[in-house]
Design a binder for these strands. Structure first.
Lengths: 237, 237
DNA sequence: ACACCAAGGTTGTATATACAAGAATATACC
DNA sequence: GGTATATTCTTGTATATACAACCTTGGTGT
């Protein structure tokens, strides 16, 4: 038996996903929702509150509650995987494996992975989608010395990140975030009508053994952003 | 006047930070807290709920509420100011003050600063240059209640960030990073020949008193990258 | 025409209450 | 001793109510 507030959350999410309630549109007031779902205002309110925390809705005292502009959001502070983040938003994640093979390391990648120039490394290329819409193009290079069975994976039930986390637990990571224009191929893969700015994250991850992987994650600027919250603790602790 | 649940949150946080309540230790039950703080159980419960969402506490039905183990992941991005970063690279930082005045808060800004819509706030606009080349367009809104003397500053020897850090020491910050196309005005100010992708950072900063400032920092994608390093400590015990 | 105020609708805070569900402990029973 | 069972304490869900704070709108008075 799912709780009422959960049922209300899903009903509201559903309305939004199916386009009944559009971006910036006002959703029914707490009292109206209470009446519609046959519950008290407090229960309807709880559903709204949790959706606001998830970034699905925005509220303003005295004004009303509105559908938030949709944009997937990744976390800056923690290394999370995109599938998790998408599922946490209550959306559907899917991915297509575009490429998975052994290649010779080019200069940039060789340096990033700390392997000799031209040595054999593994490369995978995946397109991640949120509710069927492309949000991330993942171009990843993997150190075969640390992850010898990488090519044997299917990546249909597990993302590369999830697999790597199991095989070689991450101890360090380095990020580089920049705004770039997509190449024509990238633009086509991300299903962008026009060449809009993209957010690229280049991520190097280490396990205790050394550099595990180097990934270039490309996101359409209109559909993805990075968020981070920082709390400064009092210096006493 | 701060709300009761907020006061309770701070009291609990304080207990934890000062080591009175240790990791994994059980905190008083909701009923006990209600009695201690002279409020209803629902109010005490709300305080706990929000602290659980912040990761300070963990709850388990039937068992109790406990102090969460401290986070092992360090922050990935320090709040730095652009002038420092530039000087650290051995380059020369300069800035032009483009605008500094009182304005009426538009909807988006009003929400970000948690002030009533249309109320008077301060706005500043600066262009930061590295060796004479524009690297950041800083569009900042400041809460006058917390920083009454903001307009009296010259910002020729001190950046707004530096000034704010002194006047209202920061306790929290929230970041949103996205890739956007610059407007014509922005493109001209940043001295971009073509409309190249830009990296925009929207930053909200809090002091203990509340939201201090909301800033939109726009950087040319070709001249600015955001880096971050993360180290995972061994999570023993 | 303009400034001001009142009314109504919205979200925000706070309380009192009730029962459900989970977990540990004490108790009764065999 | 071992096994149920009952009790009690905890968090989880749900409701009804009251008032505060905020925003918009419309009317009122000047």
């Amino acid at each position: 038996m799912i709780p009422k507030f959960e049922a209300i959350k899903r009903a509201i999410s559903s309305e939004i996903e199916q386009g009944q309630w559009r971006e910036h549109q006002q959703v029914p007031s707490e009292n109206a929702l209470a009446e519609r779902f046959g519950c008290s205002r407090m229960t309807a309110r709880r559903a709204l509150t949790e959706l606001v925390e998830q970034g699905v809705l925005v509220r303003s005292q005295g004004l009303g509650t509105f559908v938030a502009p949709f944009k997937s959001q990744g976390s800056m502070m923690a290394i999370r995987n995109i599938a998790e983040e998408i599922r946490e938003r209550g959306h559907q994640h899917s991915a297509q494996l575009l490429l998975l093979k052994q290649v010779a390391a080019e200069a940039e990648v060789a340096i990033a992975l700390s392997v000799p120039n031209g040595s054999a490394i593994f490369r995978s290329c995946l397109l991640h989608q949120e509710n069927g819409q492309p949000v991330q193009l993942e171009d990843r290079y993997v150190n075969p010395a640390l992850v010898p069975d990488y090519l044997a994976q299917g990546f249909d039930r597990q993302t590369p990140h999830e697999y790597l986390s199991q095989v070689a637990p991450l101890t360090q990571a380095h990020h580089l975030v920049e705004a770039v224009a997509p190449s024509e191929v990238q633009q086509r893969l991300l299903a962008l009508a026009t060449p809009e700015p993209c957010l690229q994250i280049c991520r190097r991850t280490w396990s205790s053994q050394g550099v595990v992987s180097y990934a270039r994650l490309l996101h359409p600027g209109s559909r993805f952003r990075l968020g981070g919250h920082l709390m400064v603790e009092s210096t006493s602790r």
